[in-house]
């Protein structure tokens, strides 16, 4: 089904209004980008011509570490610098009901009526790669709409969230006292990907110990992405508001580093490649699902009855794709 002309005209007017500062239009535009479709493809085509300026900051860390509260305070600092801020806050979808209860926004509601702040919640659900696809597409929209900083909040678990983080210019990993010892800090995963590490809730005891664990992990390894950026550690207490301005300054330091080394544009490029890739994968996945649905019986017997299940499945899919 081709997008009709009136539909395309509607989408174009939505983009024009959203970019021109109409917040309701931007809200609707983000909904179009929630799922890959011909519509979202058409919208992205126009958006990428207007985006590429914003600094995308990923904030990740375990649930309850204070990410949303920290982001709220960070927004205040950015606003005092005269910057416009967009936030994409990811909360999990229930594997049981497929519903979601999203409450990151609750900590940031003081900014709800600021015309230079736009906050959107994203449910992590749906198909594989769906979360990253939605978040990456929405980054392009907020960027095109002129937000200087785009903060993406996730709990940083699972491949999809790691994908989102790779699309960020700067990755901030938030942790807190009580979240683990020096061995936890040495493990693979979220403790490897940060450009900046935050020890939040530093008003609590054991914050200095955690700081030492993280410094130990950073000193003993070649952590970082090989860009000659040595990850920095900042102590904050989001609830008390301490250390947040310092964190904002450290984030600026990383931005300067990216611009100086030409990595800023590279990251925009790789973010778009990832977006196109996820889009393509989704197209293929939808088709493969259709083929399997049509040959359910046959497919369910392949593993038990075929001598070479891989080749049989491959042939089935290739034949199905030709016939679709």
């Amino acid at each position: 089904m081709q997008s009709s002309k009136p539909r395309e005209a509607y989408l174009n007017s939505l983009i024009e209004r959203a970019v021109g500062g109409d917040r309701a239009a931007l809200g609707k535009l983000l909904t179009v980008l929630e799922r890959p479709s011909r519509d979202s493809g058409i919208v992205l085509r126009t958006l990428v011509k207007k985006s590429g300026r914003a600094h995308v900051v990923g904030v990740t860390g375990i649930p309850g570490s204070g990410k949303s509260t920290l982001i709220s305070k960070l927004i205040s600092v950015y606003r005092s610098w005269g910057l416009r801020v967009g936030v994409l806050a990811v909360d999990p979808t229930s594997p049981l009901s497929r519903g979601a209860l999203m409450a990151d926004r609750l900590r940031m509601q003081r900014h709800a009526t600021d015309p230079n702040v736009f906050i959107r919640s994203i449910a992590s659900k749906g198909f594989r790669g769906g979360l990253s696809l939605a978040a990456l597409a929405m980054i392009e929209a907020l960027d095109a709409a002129g937000y200087d900083k785009i903060i993406v909040e996730t709990v940083g678990v699972g491949q999809a969230e790691v994908d989102i983080m790779h699309a960020a210019h700067t990755i901030v990993v938030v942790t807190m006292p009580g979240a683990g010892d020096d061995i936890q800090a040495l493990k693979a995963g979220v403790m490897e990907i940060g450009d900046i590490y935050v020890v939040n809730k530093s008003d609590k005891p054991e914050a200095d110990q955690l700081l030492e664990f993280i410094n130990f992990a950073l000193e003993t390894g070649e952590i970082g992405s090989g860009e000659k950026w040595r990850p920095l550690v900042v102590k904050t207490s989001a609830i008390m508001g301490t250390g947040v301005e310092e964190l904002a300054k450290v984030i600026e330091k990383h931005l300067e580093h990216l611009v100086r080394t030409g990595r800023f544009e590279e990251k925009v490029e790789s973010r778009r490649l990832m977006l196109a890739r996820l889009f393509a994968l989704r197209i293929v996945e939808e088709k493969v699902e259709k083929i399997i649905e049509a040959h359910k019986r046959e497919v369910s017997r392949i593993l038990g009855e075929s001598d070479d299940p891989y080749t049989v499945l491959e042939a089935l899919i290739e034949k199905g794709l030709r016939e679709l």
Partner: peptide, 16 residues
């Protein structure tokens, strides 16, 4: 109510 809506498959945004 927010929790019940989530359990019924809605995407709920709770502002507090």
């Amino acid at each position: 109510v927010a929790r019940a809506l989530k359990d019924a498959g809605f995407d709920v945004i709770y502002t507090g």
